[in-house]
Design a protein around this nucleic acid. Structure first.
Lengths: 190, 190
DNA sequence: CCCATTTCTTGACAATTATCAATGAAATTC
DNA sequence: GAATTTCATTGATAATTGTCAAGAAATGGG
């Protein structure tokens, strides 16, 4: 919790007082490995900040689970796309680990928005960081080969590789599990 | 100009007065087809709203130009990624048409931010729309086949297909020009 | 500690997609 | 409107990547 507060102050540029206010009064919820934080088709009315653990967002396509997102400490785990549009979620989010998280309802968010001067700024900041990440990844699909995308994760997103099962990483970068395995062999040999 | 004002009011939820204020006092700049609005490596200090015409963002990869973005009326043409981070642009932006645009310096933006109550809200709104589009496209690379990505453009982004040379569309969806040509043939036959 | 399950790797083969080269069509420029 | 240049299509071939099936390795639960 203390570490999360520091994150709010350092990365999201909140004041110490605001961060304090933000954290007071929220319950910590827990999820066991395998639990769903959100199911495809549900409407997504809660925002959760992960304090400990990680999760994956995925979608069922032709009977296969395809990972579209991963969430780690301090990330917020919801289907942004549909939360923002208030439509049923297009992805499911499932705990990969035991997860500790802070849970905020939409109402709580609105409340914070009006009570905490810096809150809107924080949302924007968070949003900006997400946007940059997403745009870079999108461009990665256009510009880079699968192998290069994997090497990029290795360099800039080590967490994903060390904490997520490999076949899920594979779908995240848009290739089959077998192909990723071969890419890894190639890298090791070189 | 009038149409752009209406866009600000309807889509970006500005008040009529704010939209008026926003539009007053900005020069319209023009670019000829082929002109660069931004060059890879430059720092990106201006935001431009296109009033008329369209542009493409691209990157040189192994001597080939790969299109990463397209911009049409009311879009803002800059390299978000690097504008937000204040780093040299990673893409070039070139006029595909004759372009009329409104040009805002970073200072002008800051000024508007402080003077116009609704401006920050507008930025956020614009940002949100961009984010949603980007995230959907990113997921498209994970979930959809090239053919499906093309059909998706056809359905939801007709402008790109009707106003942009086909080989540039091809790189945008991550495939070669020849392959796109074959996909089109397939679709026509079916 | 063992069993069951999940995850990772490998091989053989098939499907997809890229590349190269050539041609014709369309658009631009002078 | 002739000449250039850009753009789109096509075929042949090669490279990349996916699929299916099997087995090995790792992991987790009782």
């Amino acid at each position: 919790m203390e570490a999360f507060k520091q994150y709010l102050i350092d990365e999201l540029e909140m004041s110490a007082a605001d961060a304090e206010l933000f954290l007071s009064g929220f319950d910590i919820v827990e999820y066991k490995k395998g639990d769903f934080l959100l199911q495809e088709g549900q409407s997504c009315s809660k925002v959760r900040f992960i304090l400990k653990g990680c999760a994956r967002g995925f979608k069922l396509v032709d009977g296969k689970e395809i990972s579209t997102n991963f969430y780690f400490e301090y990330d917020h785990t919801y289907d942004y796309v549909n939360y923002l549009q208030q439509q049923p979620a297009e992805i499911s989010i499932q705990a990969l680990d035991h997860i500790q998280a802070i849970e905020l309802s939409k109402e709580a968010i609105e409340f914070l928005n009006s009570e905490i001067i810096g809150f809107h700024r924080m949302s924007f900041q968070m949003f900006k960081m997400n946007y940059l990440k997403t745009e870079k990844e999108r461009q990665g699909f256009i510009i880079r080969s699968p192998k290069e995308r994997y090497l990029d994760l290795l360099k800039n997103n080590k967490q994903i590789i060390s904490r997520v099962p490999q076949h899920q990483v594979a779908s995240f970068i848009g290739i089959s599990a077998e192909h990723l395995s071969r890419i890894r062999r190639e890298i090791l040999k070189a």
